[in-house]
Amino acid sequence: MIPQGSHEAADAADSFDPLRPLLTRVAYRMLGSVADAEDAVQDAFVRWLGTDRGAVREPAAFLRRTVTRLCLDQIKSARHQRETYIGPWLPEPLIDEAEEDDVTLPLMLALERLSPLERAAFLLHDVFGVGFEEVAATIDRDAAATRQLAARARTHVRDARPRYKLEKEQGLQIANAFFAASRSGDMGTLGALLAADVGMWADGGGKRPAVDRPVLGFDTVMKLHRGLAVLFGKYGSTLVHTGTINGLPGFVTREADGELQTTALEITGGKIAAIYVVRNPDKLRHMH
């Protein structure tokens, strides 16, 4: 005989599990952390388990609202943690995720500069296509205020949205060329790949060596890579995978300390405009 609680859990899982991928995407876009997103979704499942599910007319809307509210609570503590974060903060890298929306890494960084309610309104409406009435109920604001929140967010993130779609193959070719030139010390080829106003951000989180502030401008980025090329030549850097990282072309490497590292490249007009490197091992655990 199967205990009644087992039947309840199985019933809850049957209705919840098909929605889990979407809920995880919502949570990750809100939080920028794979582990925190999974925790929020699991907390939502626990609440779903204790809900009178027969009284819920639209489970997807109910659970999306639950996850969003859990994320809003989480953002408050996350913001405090980031005030004391060592060096630049970057979201945890997602490798070769399904291209179901256009939230690339630069847009995720722009979302970090929004208020939590602006972020929720923008993501739910503009990215996930949720109507303003439901968004308003989710964030506990009226529809007019919710529209204003989304409009403000749209204005703030406009420059972070790509104007032209980069062909995937072209992006991967540039990523492979960047890896080869940066690791071999071919500064001529490397320089030809970079935009004049290129910038580089490296997230070590105080756990691994990384530049502690953005490196901005062609000359400064080139100078940094000349020094890195010496280290790569001495200690090695192994290419593990080339693909998309948070919607950008890039690659995964295993560095001399045995740890993984991701490099994502923002490409504009055929040139690399930004380089995003994640070295913090805490942000790479899910990749193992």
Rank of each mutant, 00 (worst) to 15 (best):
4 Q>S: 05
8 E>N: 13
18 P>K: 07
19 L>V: 02
20 R>E: 14
25 R>N: 11
35 A>I: 04
42 Q>S: 13
47 R>E: 12
47 R>A: 12
53 R>M: 11
54 G>S: 09
57 R>I: 08
62 F>R: 12
64 R>M: 15
67 V>T: 11
69 R>S: 05
70 L>I: 15
72 L>T: 03
75 I>Y: 02
76 K>E: 15
76 K>S: 10
94 L>R: 13
96 D>H: 02
96 D>L: 02
99 E>Y: 01
105 L>E: 10
106 P>V: 06
106 P>M: 04
110 A>M: 02
116 P>T: 02
120 A>D: 07
129 G>N: 11
129 G>V: 03
131 G>I: 03
140 D>G: 03
143 A>P: 05
143 A>D: 13
147 R>W: 10
148 Q>P: 00
150 A>E: 09
152 R>D: 14
154 R>D: 13
162 P>Q: 01
162 P>A: 06
170 Q>H: 08
175 A>D: 03
177 A>R: 14
180 A>Y: 04
181 A>S: 15
185 G>M: 02
190 L>Y: 10
198 V>E: 06
208 R>L: 15
213 R>H: 14
228 L>I: 05
230 V>D: 09
236 G>F: 14
237 S>E: 13
241 H>Q: 11
250 G>Y: 07
252 V>A: 08
254 R>Y: 02
268 T>Q: 11
276 Y>I: 05
277 V>R: 07
279 R>Y: 03
285 R>A: 15
288 H>A: 15
